[in-house]
Design a protein around this nucleic acid. Structure first.
Lengths: 193, 193
DNA sequence: CGGTCTCTTGACGGAGTTCAAAGCTAGTGG
DNA sequence: CCACTAGCTTTGAACTCCGTCAAGAGACCG
């Protein structure tokens, strides 16, 4: 499917735009191919763009005090991703963003997004939904982080998103769930017997 | 300060409304006094409203598997709070919401909020900012939860928000940081010597 | 096939929990 | 306005989950 088609389909879930308007709106974005493990944002650098995943998968992570990568988020098809604070105020980013797989994405700069919203106020509604949904997901994530043991994190993930667990290497699963690959290994061993 | 004044001041940070429009917008909300420990939303029940804190403090929590309250969020003056998923889709709530202190709040129902947004599209911009900010805060929260020990959680909180730590009982601090009151006590003892 | 990622195994240690009991404090009613 | 009590906070001992370190076994890519 064409990038514009994917994006149009997503927008039309939340707001209405004429075909002519959509063409113009789409002009604010650029399409990019990114290779597996390619970095889009580097922790500590400016975060200039907001990313929309057309195909593939991005992840957000930071380097913790022990010097290991802690993954905080994955973005799959039709999800937006950026370091919101760094993007909004054009500050140094607290996270890196990297492609997990070969991906196709849309990208928009801070200035373009602001201009887009000025010119097409209907897009305020679209982004209101996008942020509301993302916030709701983050709220549930926090609840989840507090409600279960690390062992349960893994078991639940396997039960709810088996294809995702297949799609992603184990060390990233461990990094996302906040524990060591060694411990993940131990859980998996238990599951076999 | 008058409720309408507090709210108007907040709205005007993000969008512009004429005085006449503001009057009408304000009509979609109702003002309420809530007593200390009064419950606004009960886990498992419908979450009918979105709350805006004028004065005082609300908290959001759930009952974890061990049967103890886990606080996930506090909302102070000018912050919005609700269970976003339950509110948006009018489903059973995953959280309870309770007043920590005697508070004054604004309240809007799901239907009214939708109608408000239809009638005053400028308010889409306002809520877009509200959710964007809340999402950004939640994103940093997740990073934070992964990057420090529980001992550091407490130390950082005291350093960054000493008035807040004074304002709230210790068992709520422990519940918010995700550890036991006993362990909090142990940390405090260390700090004295 | 050779080397570099990735995953597994096991021994040990420490941060944080649990349980039980005692000391404190603040709000309530008399 | 004082006294009583329920609810908060502190202590200490035993225990557990999970991280660390080190080393070996697979697996995948050029």
């Amino acid at each position: 499917m064409e990038p514009s088609e994917i994006f149009k389909k997503h927008i039309s879930k939340f707001t209405t735009l004429s075909d002519a308007d959509f063409e113009e709106v789409f002009g604010f974005f650029t399409v990019h191919e990114v290779a597996k493990k390619e970095t889009l944002v580097e922790e500590g650098q400016l975060c200039r763009y907001h990313y929309f995943v057309l195909e593939g998968m991005l992840r957000q992570f930071f380097i913790n005090e022990k010097g290991t990568e802690q993954t905080t988020d994955f973005a799959l098809e039709t999800w937006w991703l950026t370091d919101n604070i760094a993007y909004e105020h054009q500050l140094a980013s607290s996270f890196s963003i990297q492609a997990v797989e070969r991906s196709r994405i849309l990208r928009i700069s801070r200035e373009n997004q602001e201009q887009l919203l000025q010119q097409f106020p209907q897009m305020e509604r679209y982004f209101r939904f996008v942020y509301q949904r993302a916030y709701a997901a983050a709220q549930m994530r926090v609840k989840y982080l507090f409600s279960r043991s690390k062992e349960d994190f893994y078991r639940d993930l396997v039960r709810k998103y088996p294809e995702f667990v297949q799609r992603v290497p184990q060390y990233l699963i461990a990094s996302f769930l906040g524990f060591t690959p060694e411990y993940l290994s131990e859980i998996r061993r238990k599951d076999l017997s």
